[in-house]
Design a protein around this nucleic acid. Sequence first.
DNA 1: ATCAAATATATAAATATTCATATATTTGAG
DNA 2: CTCAAATATATGAATATTTATATATTTGAT
Lengths: 110, 110
Amino acid sequence: MYQPLHQFKAEFFKALGHPLRLVILEQLVTGEKSVTDLQAALGVDQSSVSQQLAILRTRNIVDTRKDGTTVFYRLRDPLIAELLELARSIFNNHLIDTQAMLQQLATTDT
Amino acid sequence: MYQPLHQFKAEFFKALGHPLRLVILEQLVTGEKSVTDLQAALGVDQSSVSQQLAILRTRNIVDTRKDGTTVFYRLRDPLIAELLELARSIFNNHLIDTQAMLQQLATTDT
DNA sequence: ATCAAATATATAAATATTCATATATTTGAG
DNA sequence: CTCAAATATATGAATATTTATATATTTGAT
C-alpha cells in the first residue's frame, strides 16, 4: 500500500508515540536499566513495562543484555537520545503555545 | 493518566507515525507546497491529503498560508527537517537489518 | 448571483492500539 | 528437583486510528 521504507519509518515514530514508552526511553538515555529499575523509577507495574519494552524491542529501538535472571535494556543507538533531545528543542521553540500547555510546563519539568 | 507533557510529546511522535504524513513532510522539507501540489506529487486523492494535513496542523507540525483559494503548507519549524534527517541516519545506522529490509532498500530510494 | 476550483470536514466500517489481568517462561539458589 | 525472583507473553474489552466515500465551505471569476 505504501513504500515499505515509509511504512518502516512510520513504525519507528509510532513506537515513540506513547507516553510510557517515551518515559522509558528518557530513562535509558542515562544508561542501561533493568526492567525492575524501570518499574521502580516509573511506578508502573511489571507487565506494563515489559509490554512497552517489547514494542521498543520489536522496532529495534532498544537492545537487551541478559545477566542471570535480570534483563538490561539500553538504547540501540545513541542517536536516539539526540532525536529525543531535538524533539525537546522543537517543543520548546514552537509547539507548545496554548495557555493550558504553558501552564503545565510551568509546574512540570521537561 | 500520564504527565501532560509526555502525553503531548507522544502526540507529536504519533503524528509522524504514518507513511503518508511522512511523505508529506518530506515534500515540505524542500519548501512550502499547496494541497494540489502535494496531491499531484504523491498521487493520492485530495481528501486523503487534506485529512492528513489536518492532523499535522492539529499537532502544530505544519503551518498554513492562504493565497486566494489555495492553501500553502510549510513546516512549522526547520528543526522538524533536522529531526527527519536524524531519523534517516538512525535507520541507516542500525535499524534496518533484516534481509527483507535491505532488499527493499536496494530497490527504493531514501 | 452563479459557477467552478481548491480545500476541508463528516461519517462509518475496518483495523489497530491500549491496558488491565492472568498466566508462562527462564534462571539461579538451596 | 523445587522454589522464588525476574521477565515475558496471552487474552480480550475498551478505545483510537485509518481509509474510503460523500458532502461542505470558501473564494475568485464571470
